[in-house]
Amino acid sequence: MQFDTSVFSYMPFMLDGMRITVILSVATAVTTLVVGLVLALMRLYGPRWLSVIVTFYIDTMRAIPELVVLIWIFFSIPILTGASMPPFWAALAALTVQVSAYAAEIFRAGLTSIRAGQTQAGLSLGMSRAQILQKILLPQAVIRMLPSFGSYLTMIIKDTAIASMVAVPEMTRNAEVAAQQTYRSMEIYTITMLLYFLILFPTTRIVEAIYGRIAHRGRS
């Protein structure tokens, strides 16, 4: 079994894919955190009917595979609205729709893990519920969520791979293209696995390190 090193000439191409992977991951992380926070607030503090709808949405997104959501959005949105759906945006939309459900649950767990006494202390000072949420609960919730944030980021980075199924030129897709062109599939895919590993492995460690520094600010 030979490992043909001529494939290394494809490295720039693979790194191009990495660039897209990172861009898509960062974009997804940003959108899902924003949407996830809004969903969590709706679920925890909104009127009952809204809370029920949001809960249903979150549970549904846990049940449907990302691939199915992506394919549905990519093919159905143009049919339903007549608008065109470029692959990158379809992928971003699908990932956002799916992963923000997960983010909402992380926010919810963070917020509900804070002792009731913290809210009461804020109330006793005469703060309003909104002030308590903004100044007391959310800062602590964010700190408590940090350990999950590492696995959250790695999950997003891994999920971006499905974008290859609608031909977004990220790492997995570029691996497919390179493999077809060079016929060196095993080498290409092994290198790609390594590249992903090189991105993902440090991400968790870095988040853990940051959390270790400021964990005490989340303990009430």
Partner: peptide, 16 residues
């Protein structure tokens, strides 16, 4: 509530 102050058994300082 602003005109009353409350001190809790568990202190409830804001840790952040």
């Amino acid at each position: 509530r602003r005109r009353m102050g409350m001190v809790f058994q568990s202190f409830e300082l804001f840790p952040h």
